[in-house]
Write a protein that binds this DNA or RNA. Structure first.
Length: 587
RNA sequence: GGGGCCGUGGUGUAGCCCGGUUAACACGCCGGCCUGUCAAGCCGGAGAUCGCGGGUUCAAGUCCCGUCGGCCCCGCCA
């Protein structure tokens, strides 16, 4: 027997044709004298009919079939009798009466049902991932993933980009995330690191004259997981020579638009809107704004300066600010309890409290109204253009806390109040990030993007005077509030790169030891260059509508970084350790 | 490192607050009947000592402590 069609391909076109199909028993309906089997493969489901008059051996075989048995069937495709068509199936006009049937393999009763999209515990799904992956919804996700990578490769090929593979075994770099380390057998005590990204290699490919590079590449970061983070993940990595920021943004904007068009049939408005980092933080509170809905943060510091409401007055006196967001027409839905819950929520981001103001027909009401003069209350009404039923939630604190807590609150309310049109896909570039920020933990400046990011030309003199105020030629692509990609123009001259290392507090020796090869490369004719990297898994989440990254990774790890199917990570034979010169000390 | 939710036949849940006989329901599974179903139907049956350990109690799925595991979040993720 040789398969002639996929199950899902059998339609009215094949009527009269004798076909051989192979696949899994999706469901069996045994009527005694007549047995229906829904036969499934990756392309879909087709109904097989087993009756003594079509094939008596086949009919007997069908009585032994069970869910997920692997079978082969031969029969002549025919139109279903009138009234028995199934409009829910692509193949629902036809059926295949089985003349011959073979059980290719039996199957244990599945540990969870595969024939419906009912919720199944994730622990089980991950333990039996090969069964989970058999289900239509995951099959669909990986089709989309495959299709997307094909679109990406075709796109870059069309635009003269060359895909170059970079090492998975490389050297550890001090900045950034925790590395996964691989011990070297030949050099005991020395380690490779799995790359957090191919950052330095792609820059060196520019030095090498490739001019336009891309790669769909695995990256590794040993940090704690989230719904959108796995320890190994895939990036679309891009680098270009002789370009400025506009070239990188235009090219990758076209890439994203092409993907959405070809994979989802969605046409994005172009050019993508842009926000500077400081605008994004001022209006949305976050550097990854979800611009599918408004509810902007509005500064009202001037209204509270010198008032008797101590929390705000104190915050302002110590250089802080007061901002609020307006929830339109929802006052009545906010109970005291809900305000309390929201207050707890913002406290998680450092806010000390959350102050509500309710606009009613009688005027603006608030638990703190008694501390405020009519100017402040009227000012709020005017500033927010309040009408009866509106609610304002305000926070006074230092600017970072105000931004973060109100920004997070804004997103939470957007989701919970249904203010977001989930069919929208709204990309936005966030540009002009700070170059450096002070790390309390390390007691020094660290790179906001990474240490190879070029500063804004006009900020170069600030290396000497106020490096923490410098802005970077860095940009992020944010879609629906998720950071999908980020990149920058790089330092291509050795002097600027050296200043950057100086600002980060690396000694000359440290810089040479860790990045000597890069500094040296910069002396051999490095073209101006820049690039970007996109989170491929997150992009697939967007395209599939998945709400967990595990739905778009074939064999993902649990939140505690284990593979429940293989049992990785696992202990190894002491002989292996000895060979690597490792002496375990699991204190 | 911290906070939260969850863990009960093969699967998904109820029961837990308010401790008390044979732990309930649906699906699945096994057997029987059944020639037009597609969540097939009807009849019958098997199957869980309630994640694990300890404690309180005459008595624990239920209360308490610990622990393991899954998920979500904070920290972390240049």
């Amino acid at each position: 027997m040789r398969r002639s069609y996929y199950c899902g391909e059998v339609t009215a076109e094949q009527i009269g044709e004798t076909v051989t199909l192979m696949g899994w028993v999706h469901r069996r309906r045994d009527h005694g004298g007549l047995v229906f089997v829904d036969l499934r493969d990756r392309e879909g489901i087709v109904q097989i009919l087993f009756g003594p008059e079509h094939g008596s051996d086949a009919y007997e075989t069908a009585r032994r079939m069970r869910s997920e048995y692997v079978i082969a069937v031969t029969g002549q495709v025919r139109r279903r009798p009138p009234g028995t068509e199934n409009v829910h199936l692509k193949t629902g006009e036809v059926e295949v009466p089985a003349a011959e049937a073979l059980i290719l393999n039996e199957a244990r009763t599945p540990v969870f049902p595969l024939d419906e999209e009912r919720p199944v515990g994730e622990e089980l799904r991950l333990t039996y991932r090969y069964l989970d992956l058999r289900r239509p919804s995951l099959q669909r996700n990986f089709r989309i993933r495959h299709q997307t990578s094909q679109v990406v490769r075709a796109f870059f090929d069309r635009h003269g980009f060359i895909e170059v593979e970079t090492p998975a075994l490389t050297r550890s770099t001090p900045e950034g995330a925790r590395d996964y380390l691989v011990p070297s057998r030949l050099y005991p005590g020395h380690f490779f690191a799995l790359p957090q990204s191919p950052q330095l290699f792609k820059q060196l490919l520019m030095v090498a004259g490739f001019d336009r590079y891309f790669q769909i590449v695995k990256c590794f970061r040993d940090e704690d997981l989230r719904a959108d983070r796995q320890p190994e993940f895939t990036q679309i990595d891009v680098e270009m020579s002789f370009v400025d920021r506009e070239d990188v943004l235009a090219m990758t904007e076209e890439m994203i638009s092409t993907i959405l068009r070809e994979v989802r049939g969605v046409e994005l408005d172009r050019p993508f809107p842009r926000l500077r980092y400081d605008e994004a933080v001022a209006r949305y509170g976050l550097d990854k704004p979800d611009i599918r809905f408004e509810m902007f943060l509005v500064e009202v510091s001037d209204l509270f300066r010198g008032t008797a409401f101590r929390p705000f007055a104190d915050a302002l006196a110590s250089g802080g600010q007061v901002k609020g967001i307006r929830v339109q027409g929802k006052t009545e839905t906010f109970s005291r309890k809900m305000i309390d819950d929201l207050t707890e929520f913002v406290k998680g981001f450092g806010a000390k409290g959350l102050t509500p103001f309710r606009m009613t027909a009688e005027g603006l009401q608030s638990p703190v109204a008694k501390f405020l003069g009519p100017e402040a209350l009227e000012g709020l009404v005017r500033r927010f253009e309040l009408v009866a039923g509106d609610l304002v939630l305000a926070i006074g604190d230092n600017p970072a806390v105000v931004a973060e807590s109100l920004g997070r609150l804004r997103v939470k309310l957007g989701v919970e109040l249904g203010l977001i049109d989930k069919t929208l896909i709204r990309p936005v570039w966030v540009t002009d990030f700070p170059l450096l920020e002070y790390s309390e933990e390390e007691k020094r400046l660290v790179a906001v993007h990474h240490p190879f990011t070029a500063p804004m030309d006009e900020d170069l003199p600030l290396f000497e005077s106020a490096p923490e105020t410098m802005r970077a030629k860095a940009y992020d692509l944010v879609i629906n509030g998720h950071e999908l990609g980020g990149g920058s123009i790089r330092n291509h001259d050795r002097e600027t790169q050296q200043k950057m290392f100086d600002a980060l507090g690396f000694s000359a020796e440290q810089a040479r030891e860790r990045f000597g090869f890069l500094l040296e490369a910069l002396e051999f004719g490095t073209p101006p260059h820049g690039g970007i990297a996109f989170g491929f898994d997150r992009l697939i989440m967007l395209l599939t509508g998945a709400d967990s990254i595990r739905e778009v990774i074939a064999f993902p790890k649990t939140q505690r970084v284990q593979c429940l199917m293989t049992g990785a990570p696992a202990a190894v034979d002491p002989v292996q350790l000895k060979e690597l010169g490792l002496k375990p000390d699991f204190g």
